[in-house]
Design a protein around this nucleic acid. Structure first.
Lengths: 156, 156
DNA sequence: TTCGTTATCTTGACTCATTCCAGAAAACCT
DNA sequence: AGGTTTTCTGGAATGAGTCAAGATAACGAA
């Protein structure tokens, strides 16, 4: 298990860098998220509990909130579904979200980046972020007959 | 109260057009939303109850869901806060949301409209909507010292 | 290395927005 | 008017997330 050394070192330093204490739950969350982006709090808890024998749900939320506030993580909240987290990349990338299975993928809004950040009128608002979500169906769900519970209304 | 005739007729026809039954709660919700955009279910319930003496909360949600599915209403769900509804459905405008008071305003993404709808790589997704939310502080909140409960972390 | 301070974690209760359910009431087709 | 089917009522339930109080662990100083 020596090749984990580096990966394990990374979160530790990132925590220190933002002045957060280095704890087992935090390291586990950051490490797990590094390889499982866009996970929900519940999924993260499950993943973390596989390597740490016991972590309270509250601890997971605390870790996620603390890291999000410290900008180590980014929280994305697709409408109507639990929040998802990703290890914070400093770039302002956006997301594709499947309406059916909630699968979430990153996209770089190459063309639209600059325009998106400057709405035509800001109505006096002081803006700090432009969040873009592209809604649709993932390849799997697009090729599958719609279930009753998730029909997408097609009526124009 | 005769000058309400037209305003009252409008929702009625819109409901018929999409095959929804015309009921008092539905008309009241649509009418109220026409003059109070970006309202939450709770606010809508309160507004509607001023003219209809009694409407169940469930009815409000049913109306909102039915109308949203039928595209008479558009639901916007700013991360971490209750859903809001608006009657502007046909144009693909975006929103400014105040992180502090949740005030929500419309913006037409003049420049970015087309680019925003075409992410560089769609990863096989079949997209049907691009949702853009500009986060920041509204004029009122921007000029006010931050409360503890809503501090915006400024640490880079 | 041990100690004290303070941040973090545990447990468990709780909130809030929203949905589910079963039956009653109302809308629409004929 | 009559029969269907949709919608509304009332109340219970869900799920995601937070609050609170005390136990525990991290880290800086001695």
């Amino acid at each position: 298990m020596n090749d984990q050394g580096l990966a394990q070192q990374e979160p530790r330093e990132r925590l220190r860098a933002v002045g957060l204490r280095v704890t087992a739950p935090r390291i586990a969350v950051l490490e797990w998220l590094a390889t499982n982006p866009h996970a929900t709090a519940e999924e993260i808890a499950a993943g973390v509990r596989e390597r740490l024998d016991s972590v309270s749900t509250q601890a997971i939320y605390d870790v996620l909130n603390a890291c999000t506030r410290a900008r180590l993580l980014r929280r994305i909240e697709p409408a109507g579904h639990p929040a998802r987290f990703e290890t914070r990349t400093s770039d302002n990338h956006h997301h594709l979200v499947c309406r059916m299975c909630h699968r979430t993928e990153d996209v770089d809004c190459v063309v639209g980046l600059a325009p998106c950040l400057e709405p035509s009128s800001s109505a006096g608002f002081v803006l700090d972020e432009a969040e873009v979500v592209f809604w649709g169906l993932c390849p799997v769900c697009a090729g599958r007959p719609q279930t009753e519970s998730h029909h997408i209304e097609e009526s124009a």
